[in-house]
Computed example of a mutant assay.
Amino acid sequence: MKKTNKEEIFIELKRRIIDMEYKPGSPINEKNLIEEFCVSRTPIREAILKLSQIGLIEIKPRIGTFVSDIDISSVKYAYEIKKNLEGLAAELAASRITDLELDELFSIIERFKNYDIINDYKKCIKDDQLFHKIVRNASRNPILIEMLDSLNTKTARFLQYIEYVLDDFDWFYSSLNNMANAIKNRDLENSRIICEEHTQKFLDQMSKKFFS
C-alpha cells in the first residue's frame, strides 16, 4: 500500500467513525494504523489529535485513545443551530450554485427513487448528507461551510448509530425536490424556507424519539 498523508488518514478515520465502522467507546490502536497506512507515528498522531478537536476521539492520558461516545444533547443542539444555517446556505446557493452542482443535486434525487428505505437506510443517510454538502459548498462562504461541516459530523454519526429510517419518504423526497428546484430557479427566499422546514421536521422527529 502506498504511503498516505495525514489529511487522507484524517478523512478516512473520520469516515469510519461516522459510518460506525469504529463504534463509540472502541479503542484506537495506533500501531495497527501505522502498519495499515504505511506511515510513521507522527501523521497518525496528528490525525488523531484533529479528530479529538472535533469531538470524535477522546484521548485519555496513560489509559488510551478511544472513539468518543455520542452525546445526545449535543446532537439536539446541533440540529437547532443547523436549521438557520442550512437555510442561509440554501439561500446563498440559490444565487451562486453552478450547473454542475445542480446536476449533482438532481442525480441524488433520482437515486432516491430506487432506494428501499428499510434496507438502504445507509444510502439514504449518505445521499441526504451529500445533498446538503453540495448546497452548503455552493454557498461559497467558507466560514458557513466550516460551521455546517462540524455540525453535520455530529448529526450524521448519530443517524448512523440509530440506523435511522425515514418516517415519511414521500415528504422527504418532495422536500428535497422542492429545495433543488427553488435553488435552480434562483428563488432565494423559498430556498431558505424549504430548507429550514426540512431541517425543522427532522428535529421534531428526533425530539419525539430521542431528545427530552
Rank of each mutant, 00 (worst) to 15 (best):
N119L: 11
G64A: 15
Q205D: 15
D127E: 12
E104V: 10
N29M: 07
I118M: 10
F169D: 11
S107I: 08
R96A: 05
V165D: 01
E36Q: 13
S68E: 00
K123G: 03
P142V: 04
P142C: 06
G64C: 14
T153W: 02
K113W: 02
I18A: 00
M147R: 15
S52H: 06
R96P: 03
Y79I: 04
S139I: 01
C38K: 13
D19Y: 13
M179Y: 00
K82N: 05
K126C: 04
N119R: 12
T199K: 04
D71E: 14
I59L: 10
F112T: 06
D204N: 14
D120G: 05
A138T: 02
S95T: 13
D127P: 01
N141G: 01
V165W: 03
D187H: 05
L188I: 09
G25V: 11
V135T: 03
E110G: 08
L130V: 03
S175Q: 15
P27S: 09
K154W: 03
Y173P: 00
T155D: 00
I48M: 03
I44Y: 03
R41H: 14
I193M: 07
R16M: 08
R192W: 02
K184C: 02
A138G: 13
I48L: 06
L88F: 00
I109V: 15
I194W: 05
I34G: 12
I134T: 12
I18L: 10
F37M: 08
P61M: 14
H198Y: 13
S107F: 11
Q53I: 07
E35T: 15
K126I: 05
N84C: 09
I44M: 07
D127I: 08
F66P: 04
S40V: 10
L13D: 00
V39N: 09
N152Y: 04
Q200R: 09
R62T: 12
A138K: 02
D149M: 07
S40F: 09
I28P: 01
A47D: 03
S52G: 00
Y121F: 15
I54R: 04
R111T: 07
I162T: 02
L100N: 14
E163T: 05
S52T: 04
L151D: 06
V39L: 10
S191E: 04
L56N: 01
N84W: 07
I117E: 05
